[in-house]
């Protein structure tokens, strides 16, 4: 699957990062960290409904909801002191929310490596982002059932 065949919102983000100067990619990631909204009440009051993503260096929690129309909604939570983690959470939240379950499941696991961030934030810090996508996809699969 190439960037062209990724779901449109994700393809746009990949394109945006890939065509930016390395320094600007950090700024972009920071922008996405600002786009993570506060938790909706149904999670703020029940944080145990969020799944931890221990592969991230900083605390990150995610819940994926598949609606009756099979549209996906992503809820993420990460501390303000962890903007890198929040940035990845913001990217996936904005790119994946509203997609169909099948579209989310078809996203290749290595998509985070196409953002051109390895050279500016180190490959080590990308692992958590890949793990976040993996957990989102597993949560979608769990809700679709066998």
């Amino acid at each position: 699957m190439t960037a062209d065949t990724l779901p449109a919102p994700l393809a746009e983000i990949v394109e945006l990062f890939a065509t930016s100067e390395p320094r600007d990619r950090l700024e972009l990631l920071l922008d996405y960290s600002h786009q993570v909204p506060p938790l909706p009440a149904r999670y703020a009051e029940h944080p145990e409904r969020l799944e931890p993503v221990p592969e991230c260096q900083s605390p990150l929690f995610v819940a994926t909801e598949v609606g009756p129309d099979s549209r996906v909604e992503i809820v993420v939570d990460a501390p303000l002191e962890a903007p890198t983690t929040r940035g990845f959470a913001g990217i996936f939240r904005s790119a994946l929310t509203g997609l169909s379950a099948d579209e989310v499941l078809a996203i290749p696991g290595d998509v985070t490596s196409r953002l051109g961030l390895a050279e500016v934030i180190s490959p080590l810090r990308l692992r958590g982002a890949t793990a976040l996508l993996g957990r989102i996809q597993r949560q979608v699969r769990d809700q679709l059932g066998p």
């Binding site: 950090l26 920071l30 960290s33 260096q57 900083s58 303000l80 002191e81 903007p83 983690t85 934030i121």
Partner: peptide, 9 residues
């Protein structure tokens, strides 16, 4: 910092 973007915030 541990977080590479924390300085920018």
């Amino acid at each position: 910092d541990e977080d590479i973007l924390l300085y920018e915030t």
